[in-house]
Amino acid sequence: MTFIMILYYVMTAYVVGMLIWNFIKTKDIKSEILYALALLPLILRLLRMK
């Protein structure tokens, strides 16, 4: 894996962290669902599934 590719995984993890933080803080169910939808592709990439 190249250094730049590693940076992309770090960037993805950063966005995942921010999304989870916001997910925990929000009280609105619609927002919670949106956070979950936004998290899906990022988690799949972090786990190197797709």
């Binding site: 997910f23 169910i29 919670e32 979950a36 998290l39 988690i43 799949l44 599934m49 797709k50």
Partner: peptide, 20 residues
């Protein structure tokens, strides 16, 4: 409710990701 949403997300990640 948050746990349920996270569980559904995990289900999609695993049920969708494992075949991949």
């Amino acid at each position: 409710r948050k746990w349920i949403i996270l569980a559904v997300l995990l289900l999609v990640v695993l049920a969708g990701g494992i075949p991949l």
